[in-house]
Design a binder for these strands. Structure first.
Length: 435
RNA sequence: GUGAGCAUAGCUCAGUUGGUUAGAGCGCCGGAUUGUGGUUCCGGAGGUCGUGGGUUCAAAACCCACUGUUCACCCCA
């Protein structure tokens, strides 16, 4: 067979959809409980809406849509599939000055990135975002941390850790080591500490032109213990005013998150956390699962400048995205995903052509009574119909043969119990409902 | 965009140093007398060994290219 899917995309089979729906329902319930309101936006946007917000990497990975007509032939694109849900939200906020602020919204929808697929990473995947628009209060940042931590806990990963940093701390760190000219490469190098180790980071920043003194200063900053207030106290010593502003904000965010019930061991201030997206301005965070070989399962931060890129008004925002695709991969690997049959409660068999109408009447009566009922759709022997019912996982099978049809009855066989009973048709639904 | 591994039946995989008609398990289809599945027994279908080229008397096996796929890097959910 030479039929293939496009790279990096998947079909979602009925059994998988059960698990997906269950996970999404859990996340949605948490979002609702925290008071976020639902919003949806189009799958694609004008190209100029999306470009220039994510950095060079993001622009490269955007799926562009060719113009119709001459422009398409010339290879020109004027629209693109959304790369995340955050920039479309900012565009929406800019277009709706009448919005009452602060505005809390959740959105669960597919996004597209032209990356090479690998474990837990796809070219089409669902993001589950919760964002708070219109306030600079650290309470909003803490709410985002709390909603993500709660959702991930309820999905079955109570042992997660939310790493926390602030863009202002990172910028101040770059200044402190004299690397303000190449802040971004420095942050990327620092972010790789867990992967390439101290020597790897040192070698990489040396290539950026840092001398031994600067590297020593860098480690002074990075070697602070990973924790909470103590970490922030230690950091503040090394940073300038802007850096200390970030420190103070995180101090508040931590305090509020604890007050909201987030357990201290769930949060960890980590000065090496960078996050690549250009639009972050303040606190940034991501959630990792220690002991599991998987990247971050949620990420977010404050982006106070993004709405201003679409309109004159500066509207501060903070948000978080939960990576259900990665969590689904883990749940499936660990056998913790619901795999119940998608079959209806009862399959009504068809004895023969003469009794087809009686079978249809039975399935209609069962459905009218609220029972999930199907009728066998092919002309096959009863044995084949039963085999089908068993393989598909129906709990009940109904027979409407000559005897039942004549008496207005139906025979219900319970596969689980291996027993069967013949009752008047109008009692069938209650028999199934009682078990 | 970069690097590495893998590609044999619907699925999971065997297949010896290259050597006759390429195998297993599961699944699928049929049968074991009248309107009863799942268990058991019997039988059956199904593979140009990813595609194309090359080496050889001989290729599923060795070499090259392409395609697909997986993992990792970059970045990210």
């Amino acid at each position: 067979m030479s039929v293939h899917l496009a790279k990096g995309v998947r079909d979602y089979l009925p059994e998988q959809m059960r698990g997906r729906h269950a996970v999404m329902a859990t996340v949605r319930a948490v979002f609702d409980r925290f008071g976020f309101e639902p919003l949806d936006t189009p799958a694609f946007e004008r190209l100029d809406t999306l470009t220039g917000k994510y950095g060079d990497e993001g622009d490269k990975l955007m799926f562009r849509i060719l113009q119709r007509g001459e422009g398409g032939e010339a290879g020109l694109a004027d629209q693109a599939l959304r790369y995340d849900l955050t920039v479309p939200l900012a565009r929406f906020v800019a277009m709706h000055p009448e919005l009452r602020l602060p505005f809390k919204r959740w959105q669960m929808a597919p996004v597209w990135r032209a990356e090479r697929a690998q474990r837990g990473r796809f070219r089409e995947f669902y993001q589950c975002d919760a964002d708070i628009v219109g306030t600079t209060s650290p309470m909003a940042d803490a709410e985002c941390l709390a909603v993500a931590s709660t959702a991930i806990t309820e999905l079955g990963f109570p042992d997660h850790v939310v790493r926390l940093n602030d863009r202002r701390i990172l910028r101040a760190m770059a200044r402190a080591v004299g690397a303000h000219d190449h802040e971004l490469p420095l942050l990327i190098a620092v972010d790789k500490l867990d992967k390439i180790g101290r020597d790897g980071v040192s070698a990489e920043v040396r290539r950026l032109g840092l001398d031994d003194d600067a590297i020593a200063r860098l480690w002074q900053i990075l070697d602070v213990p990973r924790g909470h207030a103590d970490t922030l106290d230690a950091l503040a010593v090394h940073l300038d005013d802007e850096g200390r502003a970030g420190v103070d904000t995180l101090r508040e965010v931590l305090r509020i998150a604890f007050a909201l019930g987030v357990a201290p061991e769930r949060l960890q201030v980590d000065p090496t956390l960078a996050r690549g997206l250009d639009y972050y301005t303040g606190p940034v965070f991501e959630t990792v699962l220690p002991g599991r070989n998987m990247g971050s399962v949620s990420g977010g931060g404050r982006y106070d400048g993004l709405v201003g890129m679409f309109c004159g008004r500066q509207i501060p925002c903070v948000g978080v995205s939960i990576g259900i695709e990665r969590l689904l991969v883990l749940l499936e690997e660990e056998g913790r995903l619901e795999v119940a049959s998608t079959a209806a409660d009862v399959l009504v068999t068809v004895h023969d052509d003469d009794h087809r109408d009686a079978a249809l009447a039975a399935v209609a009566a069962l459905r009218a009574a609220g029972v999930r009922a199907e009728v066998f759709l092919d002309d096959k022997k009863l044995k084949a119909q039963l085999k089908y019912a068993n393989a598909r996982g129906y709990r009940w099978v109904a027979f409407v043969g000559p005897e039942e049809a004549a008496a207005g009855q139906v025979t219900l066989k319970d596969f689980a119990a291996g027993k069967q009973v013949t009752v008047p048709l109008h009692e069938a639904a209650s028999v199934i409902g009682m078990e």
